[in-house]
C-alpha cells in the first residue's frame, strides 16, 4: 500500500491531503461553492474552468476569496 501525503496551505491554513485532489475537488471537500470564489494558486489567478484539470501539489499555496462588487 502506498501513502501519498500532500501538504498544502489553503488561505494560510495548512491542510494534509491523503490523495491527489484537483482544485475543484479540494473546494468541494471544503464545501466551498465554485461560483462564489476566485482562486489564486501560488500567486497566480487560475481561471475557473481549469480548476478540474489542475491537481494540488505538495507545498502549494492556495487562496480562495469571494468577488467583491461594492463601491
Amino acid at each position: 500500500m502506498r501513502f501519498v501525503v500532500i501538504l498544502i496551505h489553503l488561505n494560510n491554513v495548512p491542510q494534509t491531503l491523503q490523495q491527489p485532489l484537483s482544485l475543484q475537488a479540494l473546494l468541494e471537500a471544503q464545501n466551498i461553492s465554485q461560483q462564489s470564489v476566485a482562486l489564486v494558486l501560488n500567486e497566480t489567478v487560475v481561471p475557473r474552468h481549469r480548476w478540474s484539470s489542475i491537481l494540488c501539489h505538495h507545498e502549494d499555496k492556495i487562496d480562495v476569496f469571494a468577488v467583491v462588487a461594492g463601491g
Partner: peptide, 8 residues
C-alpha cells in the same frame, strides 16, 4: 455565473 455575496 459568479455569485456575489457582498455589497456596501
Amino acid at each position: 455565473d459568479t455569485y456575489a455575496p457582498q455589497n456596501c
